[in-house]
Write a protein that binds this DNA or RNA. Structure first.
Length: 862
RNA sequence: GCCCCGGUGGCGAAAUUGGUAGACGCACAGGACUUAAAAUCCUGGGCUUCGGUUAAACGGGCGUGCCAGUUCAAGUCUGGCCCGGGGCACCA
């Protein structure tokens, strides 16, 4: 055991962590704070704050936090005023579920869990400004969540509406569209169903266009931008009115293909379309009613599963074609038409739409091709062509391209007042009510007429009342509805009887604006002061997992834009640069049937041979998510306890690029530990003091300067790209070179670094391994910590080597490698080639010479 | 089905953006130190039913998922295919 060295790291860890705890060097100063320096530029680097779960942080969460910590530390050294805060996303379903399961109050569990998280983070030496810690479930925070809600309510962005919403019976609450994936809850994977309910709803659709187009302003991963764009789902097209035959009424449809208007063979409505009832001909009533019955019985899932088997029913009534005289088009209903997209009705063009084609095939509707791929093509009714082409059988529009026809046909419809160009979006308004306990109460009450009225700002916060039994009600009503004394009250201003809204806000509410509160977390009078928000502006770098692509990241952008429009924030977007860290996975095992076996039930029999301990069944080693059930979760506390914090931080970064998924392997960590031990050995004498040569007046070896600058160049690039693995490699390589240079010295006169070189090295080491770097920095005689020491500047002149290895190639194949002077030119290289490559040149003539300075010489011969 | 991203030694990975593939590290093997072990240090390593040699040194050939192409030169560029991961999927 290397107990001596391990203790060495632990002592260093504890010494510096308690010093940082005492001095709080990472406190960010706001304008007006004592010691504030207005000259400094700002940098706001933020982690997605966690929900403090009962199971604590695992090494996967840590990777993103360590990445931002490295950036924060380097930015401080570069002279920025760095805002790097942390807090708890404490309201919401997971916290409430956990409390219910453990039979505790969510207030208690939240406090216990966040205390645990904070301690874990401090052990990792994450340089947060803990004086800014926030908890979204505390009244001094959520009073401002409620205040912002009120501002958005007054702006007309919130409404109450009975609508078809996703209801989750297991969670006993309504969920947002974004929270339901393939008909199951994002949280817990429970089945959900559609129900008509009256809910609080945010008009996020009003911001659809800006949420889409402002993605261009953002330095975000392309995949996240694309997911948001897909979710918003913009399509350009036209709205067309079809006159109901024998009636004054019209049916509106939305289409992206007005160019196919002359190929319409039916008008198809969603079964839930409000006009359906009035359009059924008596002769068809029984058939239609049985179809309606069948389709309403189907769940959303079943309707989706029926994609390949479309069905529909003729209503027995007709509409008129808007551009063709005396053309009757039958009206149908069909499952595949969705009531809540577009207008809930489509014009069916079987020749040019896959689903319409299927319906036509099944129900013998005419297939009328009106677009052909090219001039030569003979249109066929056997297949469906959904691309653009050239119009036929479309009267005066024949011969136009699809693109031209879309414009001209839309114009023709506009002239007849039967249509217009229209943009449609997939995104729906945001259902904001939850029938659960652990969330912000709404700051809106109902008067006796049932009209929602905002509470006075002076009445905020509307406190979440204590409840012993806060479990969801069986009938789907909110738990708060059981508190009759709380619900019903007399308005203190008017004396009027009022009723509180008994739903609570979803977990997303607090996270929609927390990054603003961090700018001014203790302000009792405002959600954030003008001075603070105009100083910090917006988050410069935001790091977190990709899972939030269309939930938190879309909701927060929406709130922020609404606040921007109200003049309450200075920027149109909250997060300038976004970076997604990759998941840290772990090895797990599965048996031949594919079932996963917990790691602690597996024994190793040989290289790559594993089996179940008790049953002896062969096990295969695979890579899987860390999960309690697989018992493959790695806790950072354990790793730190065994190896020290700096080793842990280095290894987290050394495993691979921050954005890629990588498996945690315990064996690999020893390399990082060895590196840090080598650093100590290099710097320190037997007595624990730094090497006597590390003084200001010791001569500086050129080879050392070269190594240091080479290393710095790689570290700067690595931090820029979040490939921290190459920064660790650069430091290791640099240390190896320094050792070699030192060993080359004769006898006791080793070539150690002098003081300024040693300081250069420690500055580079500090963001990654702050404890060891700080300790050695102090031993070099510094009373001030490294936290604000200036980041080294690259000296390009010091990078220059005198010699390099010139590669000599014949026809692209490497034949010789020769050490030559950096300055060698083509003539010099040719001279060398003639003497070194004689055997390859004999009897051949040189056709071409390629000389790449400071790299290679390639001769093409034949 | 459509759209992204990826595929490099036994393993995690690197490669100045077209210029020495495998840096750095793990695991492994051999050696030093030690009574021994641990720790530490040194050395080695892509493959090869090719030549060479007692063995080595050395040399040849092949090699970044597969097939073709562009180029003096391809992990890197182009086209096609296979595999893995992620996203979207009745959106009219």
């Amino acid at each position: 055991m290397s107990s001596k060295n391990k203790n060495q790291f632990h002592e260093i860890d504890q010494k510096w962590q308690s010093r940082w705890e005492k001095n709080s060097p990472y406190k960010a100063l706001n304008p007006g704070d004592p010691g504030f320096d207005p000259q400094k530029k700002t940098y706001y680097v933020l982690d997605m704050f966690p929900y403090p779960s009962g199971s604590g942080l695992h090494v996967g969460h840590a990777s993103g936090y360590i990445g931002t910590d490295i950036i924060a530390r380097k930015k401080r050294m570069e002279g920025f005023n760095v805002l790097h805060p942390m807090g708890w996303d404490a309201f919401g379903l997971p916290a409430e579920q956990y409390a219910l399961q453990t039979g505790q109050n969510p207030r208690t569990t939240t406090d216990v869990n966040s205390t645990n998280f904070r301690q874990q983070m401090k052990k990792m030496a994450l340089s947060y400004d803990w004086s800014r810690e926030i908890d979204t479930s505390k009244p001094d925070y959520y009073q401002w969540t409620q205040w912002i809600f009120l501002q958005l309510f007054k702006k007309g962005l919130v409404y109450r509406k009975e609508m078809y919403v996703w209801w989750c019976e297991d969670l006993k609450t309504v969920l947002a569209n974004e929270e339901v994936i393939n008909g199951r809850s994002e949280r817990g994977n429970f089945p959900c169903e559609r129900r008509p309910l009256t809910q609080w709803v945010f008009k996020i659709t009003e911001y659809a266009e800006r949420l889409l187009s402002d993605l261009d302003l953002l330095d975000w991963p392309a995949s996240i931008k694309k997911q948001q764009a897909d979710w918003i789902g913009k399509s350009n097209g036209a709205e067309i009115d079809f006159q109901i035959f024998g009636s004054k009424n019209k049916i509106k449809v939305f289409t992206t293909r007005p160019d196919t208007l002359f190929g319409v063979s039916a008008l198809v409505l969603a079964p839930e379309h409000p006009l359906v009832a009035s359009l059924i001909a008596d002769s068809h009533r029984s058939n239609v009613q049985s179809y309606l019955k069948k389709s309403s019985a189907k769940s959303d899932r079943e309707r989706k599963a029926d994609v390949d088997d479309v069905s529909g029913e003729f209503l027995g009534t007709y509409v008129e074609h808007p551009l063709l005289e005396n053309q009757k088009i039958p009206i149908w209903i069909a499952d595949y038409v969705l009531v809540d997209y577009g207008t809930g009705a489509v014009m069916s063009v079987p020749a040019h739409d896959e689903r319409d084609f299927k319906l036509a095939k099944k129900c013998q509707l005419p297939i009328l091709p009106v677009v052909k791929k090219n001039l030569e093509e003979v249109p066929s009714t056997a297949t469906c062509f959904d691309g653009d082409g050239i119009l036929i059988r479309s009267g005066r529009f024949d011969g136009l391209t699809s693109e031209q026809a879309r414009i001209q046909i839309t114009q023709a419809l506009e002239e007849k007042k039967l249509g217009q160009a229209k943009v449609s979006y997939k995104i729906r308004d945001w259902i904001f009510s939850r029938q659960r306990y652990w969330g912000e109460p709404f700051p809106v009450s109902f008067n006796q007429a049932g009209v929602p009225v905002p509470v006075q700002e002076s009445e905020l916060p509307v406190l979440l009342p204590d409840m012993k039994d806060f479990s969801p009600s069986a009938d789907g009503s909110a738990p708060l509805a059981r508190l009759e004394d709380w619900v019903e009250y007399l308005d203190p201003q008017t004396g009027e009887k009022k009723f509180r809204s008994t739903d609570t806000m979803p977990g997303w509410a607090g996270s929609c604006w927390y990054y603003l509160r961090f700018m001014d977390p203790k302000n009792p009078d405002q959600f954030v002061s003008d001075q603070a928000k105009n100083y910090w502006h917006q988050v410069d770098l935001y790091v977190g997992g990709a899972a939030h692509a269309v939930m938190h990241l879309l909701y927060a952008r929406f709130w922020h834009k609404a606040l921007f429009d109200l003049g309450l924030v200075p920027t149109p977007e909250p997060f300038k640069k976004l970076f997604n860290q990759g998941m840290v996975t772990a090895y797990a095992f599965k048996d031949p049937t594919g079932r996963l076996i917990p790691s602690d039930e597996v024994q190793q029999l040989g290289p790559n041979k594993y089996a179940h301990k008790t049953t002896g069944v062969a096990a295969e080693k695979i890579i899987a998510k860390m999960a309690k059930s697989l018992r493959n979760v790695v806790n950072p506390d354990d790793v730190i306890a065994e190896r020290g914090c700096d080793t842990f931080r280095l290894y987290e970064m050394f495993m691979g690029p921050l954005d890629s998924e990588k498996p945690w392997a315990d064996e690999g960590i020893s390399g990082c530990e060895k590196f840090l031990k080598r650093v100590l050995i290099y710097f320190l004498q037997e007595n624990g003091e730094t090497k006597p040569e590390m003084t200001a007046d010791a001569p500086a070896a050129n080879a050392v300067d070269r190594s240091l600058n080479k290393c710095l160049k790689r570290i700067d690039e690595s931090f820029e790209n979040f490939n921290f693995n190459t920064a660790v490699a650069a430091l290791m390589e640099c240390m190896n070179e320094l050792m070699t240079v030192a060993a080359a010295g004769a006898g006791k006169q080793k070539n150690w670094m002098n003081q300024s070189q040693a300081e250069f090295f420690l500055k580079m080491l500090f963001p990654l391994a702050p404890h060891v770097a700080s300790e050695l920095w102090e031993k070099l005689g510094h009373a001030q910590g490294l936290d604000f020491a200036s980041w080294p500047k690259l000296d390009a002149a010091k990078l220059v080597d005198t010699q390099f290895e010139l590669v000599l190639q014949i026809n692209g194949k490497i034949r010789k490698k020769v050490m030559v002077a950096m300055t060698i030119d083509q003539a010099g290289a040719m001279e060398l080639a003639h003497s070194q490559l004689q055997e390859f040149l004999q009897g051949k003539s040189i056709r071409k010479i390629i000389f790449v300075p400071q790299r290679l010489l390639n001769l093409v011969v034949s």
